[in-house]
């Protein structure tokens, strides 16, 4: 059965003008992501992965090349049209969660729906609760971010990414601020979402986190050096192993 093409980029270039120098952050990158894939995008800092993520997330536009998201050509769109694409088709998860301070979890999750006129006000809350249930945080929906642990905050952020039912979730170093154990928990959650059919692109520089995905794209100096399917490890198993090791060490 042919799968839907979610992301299709062809020969993508992005150059920055730094003083008199021209820096090529992306040098002709091409790949596709199909529905239901869990892709990790890896690379060291300066490899161009942040630039790629900004373009994938419609926050930035390529200098040249084609980008289709779910069949829509992004290159020619205006700033406002890009906002709409981000709102309807993309769910962002950031390294530092980016939750609104002193705002309850449920209000944080509802935020993207505020900018979607198609969703009536009374439906917002239901959808936010459903999203919080998906990340198993419905019991904390009235807590402010400061009352939640880092892992819980990231789960609220993931719920916020889910609430608009996007075609792809873009995670930018989503486990970067978390300890190993919580990282495994978050990766378990991503794997659950993937199992339910969500398409996920996960930017990371940690190789062991990348093993929990189904495919790895490696960037270096603005070009793809590796793009291959990998054997997915279970994050839940890794978590269990980690706990066991901890117990052994304690004994």
């Amino acid at each position: 059965m042919p799968k839907n093409e979610i992301i299709n980029i062809q020969n993508l270039y992005r150059t920055f003008q730094v003083g008199s120098e021209t820096v090529n952050a992306l040098n002709g990158v091409s790949f596709n992501i199909f529905e239901g894939e869990f892709v990790s995008i890896m690379g060291t800092s300066g490899s161009g992965k942040s630039t790629l993520l900004n373009i994938l997330g419609c926050l930035d536009r390529p200098t040249s090349g084609e980008y289709y998201i779910n069949g829509t050509a992004v290159s020619g769109l205006s700033k406002n049209q890009l906002s709409t694409i981000r709102n309807r088709k993309i769910g962002f998860v950031f390294q530092n969660y980016n939750l609104l301070a002193r705002t309850s979890a449920i209000d944080n999750v509802q935020l993207p729906l505020l900018y979607n006129a198609d969703i009536p006000m009374k439906e917002r809350r239901e959808r936010a609760i459903a999203a919080l249930e998906a990340v198993r945080l419905a019991d904390r929906m009235n807590h402010a971010p400061s009352q939640l642990s880092g892992g819980q905050q990231q789960r609220v952020a993931i719920a916020r990414a889910l609430v608009n039912d996007p075609v792809i979730i873009l995670a930018d170093e989503a486990t970067g601020n978390l300890d190993t154990r919580t990282s495994y928990e978050i990766m378990t959650l991503f794997q659950e979402l993937h199992a339910k059919g969500k398409t996920i692109a996960f930017v990371t520089h940690e190789p062991d986190i990348a093993t929990f995905t189904t495919r790895t794209i490696k960037l270096r100096d603005g070009s793809i050096v590796l793009d291959q399917a990998i054997e997915q490890q279970s994050a839940a198993a890794a978590l269990a192993q980690y706990e066991q090791n901890l117990t052994h060490t304690a004994i």
């Binding site: 997330g57 926050l59 700033k79 406002n80 906002s83 709409t84 981000r86 709102n87 309807r88 962002f92 980016n98 609104l100 935020l111 993207p112 900018y115 979607n116 916020r160 608009n164």
Partner: peptide
Amino acid sequence: GLRMAIGAQNR
């Protein structure tokens, strides 16, 4: 920045 990333327009 966050509001814009999740779909707020300039307006």
